[in-house]
Design a binder for these strands. Structure first.
Lengths: 115, 115
DNA sequence: CCCATTATAGCCATAGTGGATATATCTATA
DNA sequence: TATAGATATATCCACTATGGCTATAATGGG
């Protein structure tokens, strides 16, 4: 499966990939991570999150893991997700697309920084 | 009106802003410009284009211009559009948002280039 | 004159999203 | 202990953005 075929990604999907890139996270932790990362400007709704997760598992962008934290830090309601190698490829392709858009905007004087 | 309030922009809207940033263009020319700029990967459908244009005029991101090219190069069917100062502000804000996403992806090892 | 291309526009179906609601568990505190 | 509020997952409905199709019409080359 070609990573480019999934581009452009839905906004929620890209943010979720960033959230699980450095460590496994459960759904609710993903919402909070995105809120922190965007400085509070993006608050993923629960509806969007859980449907996005379902789709992303089907697309093999993320997988649910069996590994749980130590029982004293765990919460049995949680379901943890991990990015897949394919998920990494897709995230790289999408951020490359963003980088290209930023370059074009700069060339047109539509971005702060060097013109 | 705060430019940030319109973010994140629909994908088509941002591409249209880039297309009319350097010169006035008519609808069909916008479609071709986007196709060229994205290396053929993004082909805006006519339906998306004209509905996006209507919305963007209502939001004061672009305006229809009276200026026409010399008659020998003109085509009376065409309607030309120009980016507004507010449209520039919004495009800058959106490309700033993209740049921030690329930075985060880089920090997570999810972008080619410097880690 | 004919036909492909250019050009704008409306219609219908689908995908992604937000907001509301439901259910249940965990945690702090009164 | 009781209970309120935060945590956690999930589903439903409505709305927006998009793609694809169709309609209409003018332009330009053979």
């Amino acid at each position: 499966m070609n990573p480019e075929a999934l581009l452009p990604l839905p906004a929620a999907t890209f943010h979720i990939l960033l959230a699980v890139a450095d460590q496994d996270r459960h759904g609710y932790a993903i919402i909070r991570d995105i809120e922190v990362r965007t400085g509070g400007t993006l608050r993923l709704s629960a509806g969007t999150l859980y449907r996005s997760i379902q789709r992303m598992v089907e697309q093999d962008l993320i997988v649910e893991t069996d590994e749980r934290p130590a029982p004293e830090f765990d919460d049995e309601r949680r379901r943890y997700y991990r990015i897949t190698p394919f998920g990494r490829q897709v995230a790289k392709a999408e951020s490359q697309r963003f980088a290209s858009l930023v370059e074009q905007a700069r060339a047109l004087g539509l971005a702060p920084g060097r013109p």
